[in-house]
Amino acid sequence: MSTPLFAIFLLAAAIFAVFLWVRLPKLIGARSGRILLLLALFVAPLLLIPVGVGKSLHDSKRKDFCTSCHEMRVYDVSLQIDDSEYVPANHYQNRLVPQETACYTCHTDYTLFGDVKAKMSGMKHLWVHYFGDVPEPGETKLYSPYPNDNCLQCHRGGKRFEKKGSHNSDGVTVEMLYANQKSCVSKGCHDKIHDISHLASQDLWGEPRWPLPESLIKRAKEEAPAAEDPFAEPAGGGAKDPFADEKPAPDAGGGAVDPFANEPDVKPAEPDAKPAEGDAAKPAEPDAKPAEGDVKPAEPSTTPQAPKNGDAK
């Protein structure tokens, strides 16, 4: 519905309410008036309540709903990180989760009251947004450790998941993951999550959907090594020629520089994990994974470092 239509609807509702208010004594006295009151005060709300509740609950699962608060926009940008080791970005970009409801899919507990719990968390977010101290970008934490069940909703029972070497090592077994004894996002496992703190220094897939906060850009500049600036003066004095032929390609022969020899952003080809056909909500296993064998021994899984769509304190 467009804004003019909405204005017309409001105007009509207001006129109708005034009409009912003024004519109420006469309406009660006439049969047609009583029918009108029945329709306006009972039948119409009875029909409109399920429409409003259903549509708003459905639409509140959308990513656009989450990112309508500016605090959440950095998390939206983090879904654009061009590195397949970042779990949320990999899932989002390869459509392993529905892109329209990406936040909801991964951050809602798959239990009977998971949806209600997510909504109550949202209330807390709203409270902090208006009345609390909003943490700096990158400082937000989850209210509770990220539960494995949210990953296992899709991955449980998958052949690739269960046969994977790093899920069957000395420190980690599939049973431990199923029992939530070892967190999927433990350090050394799938620990590259949103990583908001370093977001400004990441390569992104496309233009960032939202401008990044100044604090993140400043931090990225501070952390960037000065040597990367070709025009910066070296510490030893003497201007460095940025166009100097530092590393001629071995096969160049006559000293011609291969323009792609030092290409910094070449990424390995992505594995071919694909979501199950026709079922976006049940994707196949993601291809973001640490190299096999690099999983560290078991450690308590109570403190995953995943940033949160929220403001836990």
């Binding site: 519905m1 609807f9 119409a44 709300p45 429409v51 409003g52 549509k55 509140s60 709903f65 947004h129």
Partner: peptide, 18 residues
């Protein structure tokens, strides 16, 4: 009922957390 209808209309048109 009017308050309810107005808030519902606003929600359906511009759904945001508030």
């Amino acid at each position: 009922v009017l308050i309810g209808l107005v808030t519902e209309a606003i929600t359906l048109i511009e759904l945001t957390p508030p």
